[in-house]
Amino acid sequence: MLKVTITLEEDILQFVDQYAQGNRSAYINTLLAEHRRRILAAEMIAALKQDAEDPEYQAEIAAWDSVVGDGINARE
């Protein structure tokens, strides 16, 4: 874990202190981790939508789907 110094506006710090239950670092880490999770999820959804709308990608997927059931068994 790294230690950093940040500057917060007074009203933001009061808000953090109101909800941090005595542990500002843990509270801020939790907020940022959740924010990061939401951003990554939105980026993944956007990428999947882009793939779904890409005819070349869809053709490639269709080609691979056609060989999925060709009897090859990776365990043998």
Rank of each mutant, 00 (worst) to 15 (best):
Q50H: 09
E60K: 12
K49T: 07
I45P: 03
I39N: 06
K49L: 10
I39M: 10
Q58R: 10
E34G: 08
A41T: 10
L32S: 05
D17R: 15
N23S: 10
I61Y: 00
A42I: 01
A63L: 11
I45T: 14
L32N: 02
E34P: 01
Q18Y: 12
A26F: 06
N23V: 07
D65F: 03
G69C: 01
G71E: 06
N29I: 04
E56F: 03
E53D: 08
I72L: 05
A62S: 09
L32M: 11
S66I: 00
Q21N: 11
D54K: 04
A63D: 13
A63V: 03
I39F: 03
E53S: 09
A63N: 02
E10H: 08
Q18R: 15
A33V: 05
E9P: 04
W64L: 08
N29P: 03
E56Q: 11
A46L: 01
I39Y: 05
N29E: 12
Q21K: 15
R36Y: 08
A26D: 07
L13A: 10
E60H: 11
A20I: 00
A42P: 01
V67L: 12
D51A: 13
A33W: 04
R37L: 10
D65Q: 14
A62K: 14
L31N: 12
A62I: 02
I28V: 11
Q14L: 13
P55W: 03
I61L: 15
T30P: 00
A62M: 02
A42Q: 12
D70N: 13
E10I: 09
I45K: 14
P55C: 03
L31T: 03
S25C: 05
E60P: 01
K49D: 15
G69W: 00
S66G: 02
A41K: 13
A59L: 11
A41W: 08
Q14S: 15
N23I: 04
H35T: 14
L40Q: 15
S25T: 14
R38Y: 04
H35D: 09
E56W: 00
E43K: 12
A33R: 15
A47S: 11
N73M: 00
R24L: 09
G71M: 01
N29V: 04
A47K: 11
I45V: 13
R38G: 07
D11H: 14
F15Q: 15
H35E: 14
D54A: 12
Q18C: 11
E43V: 01
D65K: 15
G22H: 00
D17G: 09
D65G: 01
E60G: 05
E10F: 07
L40S: 05
E53M: 04
G71F: 07
D17A: 14
M44K: 12
E9I: 11
A74G: 02
Q21A: 13
A59Q: 13
V67K: 11
V68D: 03
E60F: 09
M44F: 06
N29K: 13
Y19Q: 12
W64E: 14
I72H: 05
A42R: 08
A41L: 07
I28N: 01
R24K: 07
Y57A: 10
W64C: 04
R37Q: 15
E53Q: 14
V68C: 06
R38W: 02
E53P: 01
N73A: 00
A62H: 04
N73C: 00
E43C: 02
Q50C: 04
A26K: 09
D65M: 07
Y27V: 02
G71L: 00
D54N: 14
